[in-house]
Each structure stands twice: as structure tokens, then as C-alpha cells.
Design a protein around this nucleic acid. Structure first.
Length: 425
RNA sequence: GGAGAGAUGGCCGAGAGGCUGAAGGCACCGGUUUGCUAAACCGGCAUAGGGGUAACACCCUAUCACGGGUUCGAAUCCCGUUCUCUCCGCCA
């Protein structure tokens, strides 16, 4: 969410930001409306406050007269009239304010200057790591190897929950545990993150704090009786950890790592990537979240991204790093790096991590601030997050990239202590 | 799930329709005193919004968990919600 003051003082800047995302045509009417509303809003505030001031004066006069034992009936009648006017003015103020909020919630974040204009086609590969097995013949897609090795049971997942729900079995199940332990241990021991274990069901305020609500309610699994939602990512509970709090500057930057299941309805993507593990309704993920000061958040994004990359290197999976163009950058993000691994069985690059800096966009919404020094005004922190990594696609990539001619799968060095063997066969 | 008690500033804690943005204490910041530490004393000490100013000053409004209501006027009375605590029930 943007600062309402941008609408007043920096409309050109805001307009330029929407243009860079390729959203100006779509959002121009909103911006125009907002500009007008901002004037009305201040007008309404002023009128309402003037009336309140008048009422307070009348009430004090009544009190004085009462104490003096004089009659206050006329004043009280006046007070009633003013009270009625306040109610009207208040209603108008709320209406204007409500519409303004609606608009603010629909405007995406401004991207950093270094982010290229344009859509997906303007994304750039900033680096690659490892050698892919692109074009190599005879590599089976992960669902075939997975079923053959007895580590995946997709038909039964579909039976007990539906399509897009996975049963891992045997070493497959253990692989999930191994990935969790490898990743969390690495981020805690080597990268200095604090480990968290968080609720998978969260309330509406939490979902709103990170921006899933109100706009994306249809994408979420919900428990309406309790007004709770299944998290689409651990970013939601972890970023909300300090909602409505003021942190000490000495505590920043701060990093948290959490393993969680993630639930996504994937409404609107019917028919895409329906086979195997590429697009599922429930998957596991290790998520990194960082809180930073505005001064160092850009550098923190590079650090966070490098932490996610470390995991791919440990898993010996070739990958590339994409810097997303403005039009492909997520709603709340100011800049995003996507990490994609190559899965030679399906012949595709798979997105397994998305590392973003949100500047103060989420923090304003969730009201997370910090105080640089005692006595100074609190400012909004900058938040960042990135997956490190999303399991289902990683498992797909492992089953394909490390697949051997006899159909067995080599276990990368780093996973062996956790998995207890060097080959899946 | 049932019964009861509670929620006031960074913290503790008073207040029970008007003179209360809120006593008192602690913490914190500045000053005086002081060989040092400590103590004592004096002063300061919420946030947000609107106006105002070159910038200050200053003025107004809101905020005593949250949302409604009663009233000329609500921290205070009424209703609803949330959370915390105690007891009972249930449960991994």
C-alpha cells in the first residue's frame, strides 16, 4: 500500500511507476479519481473537525452553566443540532475515505529505477550456474521415474484429496524431510537466520497485512466458519510476526527461516502443467524473510538471493537467475529475482524461488516500523522474502537432472547424510 | 462447549458522566549539585490527522482493547466482538 501523501505530492512519480509496469492505461482512471478524492477528503476532514470543535465548546458551556446553576436548555438544543450535523459530515468523511482506501489497495508498488520497463519478454538472465542436460535423449519425466521408483504416488494423492495433491512414499517421503532439514539447517547455521515454526491457518488481518486480501481471496483456501485461511506461503505468518510493532534499529537486519506447507487454489490456471509436480495445490517450502532498513534493503536483496542460490548449488541443480521486468514483477514487489532450475525430463525451466524486496509497501500495510535511535520518529521497515526453496519442483528437477541411464537417481552429496543413501533405486 | 473476572500511556497503576490526553510511581531524556558511582532536586517525556509557518511557534480534531449505541457531553453507562486469566467439560 502506498502512502496517501504520494497522491498529493508525487502524482507524476506514481503515474510514471504505473506506466513502467505497463498498467497506466488500466489505472489512469483510478489515479484521476484519487486526485479528486484527496481534495474532497481534506475538505471533509476539515468540515467534520470544525463541527466537532463547535460541539466541544457547547458541551463545556453547558457544564459551566450547570455548575453555576443556570439554565442550559437552549445550549443543549444547539448541541443536539450540531450533533446531527456531525453525524452527516462523519458519514461523508467515511465514504470518501473508504473509496480512497479501495483505490490505494489497488495500486501496485513502484519498482526500483534499475528494473527494466516492459513485460515478461523484457526479463533478463543475470547469471546461470551449472550445466543443463538440455536436449539429452532418454530422460524420463519425473512422474514416470517417481512412480517407477515408488517415491511418488500421484493416483492415490488424487483419490484422497484431488488432482494436485501429492503422496510421497518411502524414500520420497524421507526426501521431503531431508530437504527440509538440509535447507533449514543451512540457513540457520551458515546464513544466520532464526528458525520459526508457524501456524498454517491464519486470520483475516494477517492475510491482509501481506496483501493476499482483499484482492486475491479467490486464490486462497478458506475455513469460513472460523474466518481463517490456509497460508499460500510462510511469508504470510512470518512477515506478520511483527505486525503493529516497532523494532529497534539495532535488531536490523533480521532474518527468519520457516518450513511450511503452502496451499494454493490455482484458480484460473486450469489446464496448465497438470501433470506431475509442476503445479500443485499443496506443496512444501522453506521460506526466508528479512526485515531491513530502507538504506540497506537493496543490498539485502542480493544477500537473500545468494542464500537461495546456495541451496541449488548444494543440490547440484543447474539454474539461472532472472531479473524481472516491471510488468512481470509482483503487485507488492519493488524488484524481484526469479530462480529457475532446468528439468531435462520435461524440458522446461521451473521457477523454484522468487526473491523480492517490497520496500515499505508491505510494512505500511502491516504497520511494521523501526526506530533508528531513541527519541526519533518510527519509520517503516523494508521487508524482503524469497523461497529457499519450493520442494515439489525441486523434487521434479532432482528426479530428472540426476536421473541415470538405468532409471535410478543419484543423490547429491549434501543430501546424503539426511537421506541415508547415495542413490534412489 | 459452560460459568466468572479482566483489558487505561514504554511498564506498573488511579480514575466510576463535564474542569481528564488522562493522578501517582517506574523507566527514559536534559539540567543543578557531586572527587567517582549513587542519591537528591528541577524540567521534559504519546501517537496520528487537519490547518498554520520560510522553518519553528501555534491552533483544531481523534485516540483509555475494537465496533456500535445512549447523552448537549463517555475512559466512565448500555450492546456486540476480540483477546487474557480462573474454574468445569472435552481432547492429541
Amino acid at each position: 500500500m502506498h502512502d496517501i501523501r504520494l497522491l498529493r505530492d508525487q502524482m507524476d512519480h506514481l503515474r510514471e511507476g504505473m506506466r513502467r509496469r505497463g498498467k497506466l492505461a488500466e489505472l489512469q482512471p483510478l489515479l484521476d479519481r484519487a486526485e479528486q478524492l484527496e481534495r474532497e477528503r481534506r475538505e471533509a476532514i476539515r468540515a467534520a473537525e470544525d463541527a466537532q470543535s463547535q460541539r466541544n465548546r457547547i458541551s463545556q458551556d453547558v457544564a459551566q452553566r450547570r455548575r453555576a446553576g443556570e439554565d442550559a436548555e437552549a445550549l443543549m438544543a444547539e448541541g443536539r443540532a450540531v450533533g446531527a450535523r456531525i453525524a452527516e459530515l462523519e458519514a461523508r468523511r467515511q465514504a470518501v475515505d473508504g473509496e480512497m482506501q479501495d483505490i490505494l489497495l489497488q495500486l501496485p508498488n513502484l519498482t526500483l529505477d534499475e528494473v527494466a520497463e516492459g513485460g515478461e519478454e523484457a526479463n533478463t538472465v543475470v547469471r546461470t550456474w551449472g550445466t543443463t542436460r538440455e536436449g539429452e535423449q532418454g530422460i524420463a519425466p519425473h512422474w514416470e521415474v517417481g512412480e517407477a521408483l515408488g517415491v511418488l504416488d500421484l493416483p492415490r494423492g488424487a483419490k484422497i484429496s484431488g488432482s494436485g495433491f501429492i503422496v510421497y512414499r518411502g524414500l520420497g517421503a524421507r526426501l521431503v524431510r531431508a530437504l527440509m532439514n538440509l535447507m533449514v539447517d543451512t540457513h540457520v547455521e551458515e546464513h544466520g537466520y532464526e528458525e520459526l515454526w508457524v501456524p498454517l491457518l491464519v486470520n483475516r488481518a494477517t492475510m491482509t497485512g501481506t496483501g493476499q486480501l482483499p484482492k486475491f481471496e479467490d486464490d486462497m483456501y478458506a475455513v469460513p466458519d472460523d474466518d481463517l485461511f490456509l497460508i499460500p506461503t510462510a511469508e504470510v505468518p512470518v512477515t506478520n510476526l511483527y505486525r503493529d510493532e516497532i523494532l529497534d534499529a539495532a535488531e536490523l537486519p533480521r532474518g527468519f527461516v520457516a518450513f511450511s506447507a503452502c496451499f494454493r487454489r490455482e484458480a484460473g490456471s486450469a489446464g496448465k502443467d497438470t501433470r506431475g509436480l509442476l503445479r500443485v495445490h499443496e506443496f512444501d517450502k522453506v521460506e526466508l524473510v528479512r526485515y531491513a532498513t530502507p538504506e540497506n534493503s537493496r543490498a539485502e536483496l542480493d544477500l537473500l538471493t545468494s542464500h537461495a542460490e546456495t541451496m541449488l548449488q548444494r543440490l547440484e541443480l543447474p539454474y539461472r537467475v532472472l531479473k524481472l521486468a516491471a510488468g512481470d514483477t509482483g503487485f507488492s514487489s519493488a524488484m524481484t529475482f526469479d530462480l529457475e532450475v532446468f528439468a531435462p525430463g520435461v524440458g522446461k525451466w521451473l521457477e523454484v524461488s522468487s526473491c523480492s524486496v517490497f520496500t515499505d509497501f508491505q510494512a505500511r500495510r502491516a504497520n511494521i516500523r523501526f526506530r533508528a535511535a531513541a527519541g526519533e520518529k518510527p519509520r517503516f521497515v523494508h521487508t524482503l522474502n524469497g523461497s529457499a526453496l519450493a520442494f515439489s519442483r525441486i523434487i521434479a528437477a532432482l528426479l530428472e537432472q540426476h536421473q541415470q541411464a538405468d532409471g535410478s537417481v543419484r543423490v547429491p552429496e549434501a543430501l546424503r547424510p539426511y537421506l541415508g543413501r547415495d542413490t534412489l533405486r
